[in-house]
């Protein structure tokens, strides 16, 4: 059986909000090391890979592997019934067809319980090889979100160029064009505002901004984001969690 407790329901609410726009139904695999999810969006442009290590829970127990087949929007609907600071417990018996969620407000002596029906989901998995990326950029998650939001007013696509001078975001549409360039920098006072670039060769890739905007909804999970890119390959975008990560693999536009 699975029994996993979080001190604040907001932790799971934020994670679900960061992935729900891209995913419909998917399996969450639970074992003694934690919870994991890998799922493709239906257009096969973004893959979401979530890892929640058992250390990230205040209590965690999973004696044997459990697969939770869930509709992510149904999970989001139920989580809306939890207050952000409620203690949240996930529970599922072996071979059960439901996930039990309890939301507990210890001060108000309130306990709410919801049973979410589980499904058998025949899911496709992608084999992602270990890759050395040509460019790795660590930057503020909020700054990335803001930059992409600004450029989405111009075009449906953004081009990202990374070289030793920095990282440049640009877009061009009917009304004109725009770009934002960030140089590598170290901000001693606010470390999350630093921009760190590791590069083996310069890279330029273009991406759909609507999908990118959905990905950056994970900005509430982490102050920084790690972008990894290699020419002609999907990008890897990672938001670190206290024990785990939300990672996206994002297919670029195909250049001629």
């Amino acid at each position: 059986m699975l029994e996993a407790k979080l001190d604040a329901a907001s932790q799971l609410k934020k994670i679900v909000e960061a992935i729900r726009d891209m995913l419909g139904e998917c399996n969450i695999e639970c074992n003694e090391t934690g919870l994991a999810l890998q799922s493709l969006d239906k257009s096969h442009i973004v893959l979401v890979s979530l890892l929640l290590g058992s250390d990230g829970f205040s209590e965690y127990r999973c004696d044997r592997g459990v697969t939770l087949g869930l509709n992510i929007n149904s999970l989001a609907t139920v989580l809306r019934c939890a207050n952000n600071d409620d203690i949240l417990t996930l529970r599922s018996e072996d071979r059960a067809n439901e996930l039990i969620l309890t939301f507990e407000d210890s001060k108000a002596d309130r306990i709410s319980e919801f049973n979410l029906r589980l499904m058998d989901i025949d899911q496709e998995y992608l084999a992602i090889p270990e890759t050395e990326y040509a460019a790795t950029v660590v930057m503020s998650a909020a700054v990335l979100q803001r930059t992409l939001r600004d450029l989405s007013a111009l075009s449906e696509a953004v081009t990202i160029e990374i070289d030793k001078e920095g990282i440049r975001f640009s877009a061009e549409g009917d009304l004109g064009k725009g770009s934002t360039h960030f140089k590598p920098c170290v901000d001693m006072e606010n470390a999350e505002n630093s921009i760190n670039i590791t590069l083996s060769e310069p890279v330029s890739l273009s991406f759909n901004l609507q999908y990118f905007s959905n990905i950056t909804k994970a900005s509430s999970l982490s102050s920084t984001v790690t972008l990894q890119m290699t020419a002609g390959m999907p990008a890897q975008i990672e938001y670190k969690l206290p024990s785990g990560h939300v990672r996206y693999y994002f297919a670029p536009k195909i250049e001629d």
Binding site: L40, S43, H44, I45, V46, L47, E124, Y125, L126, A127, I128, P129, E156, A157, S206, N208, M233, P234, Y249, A251, P252, K253, I254, E255, D256
Partner: peptide, 14 residues
């Protein structure tokens, strides 16, 4: 406008 790539063009489905 450049066509959109698919992850299944890059990675194997298992």
């Amino acid at each position: 406008v450049a066509p959109q790539g698919r992850l299944t063009d890059f990675f194997k489905v298992s």
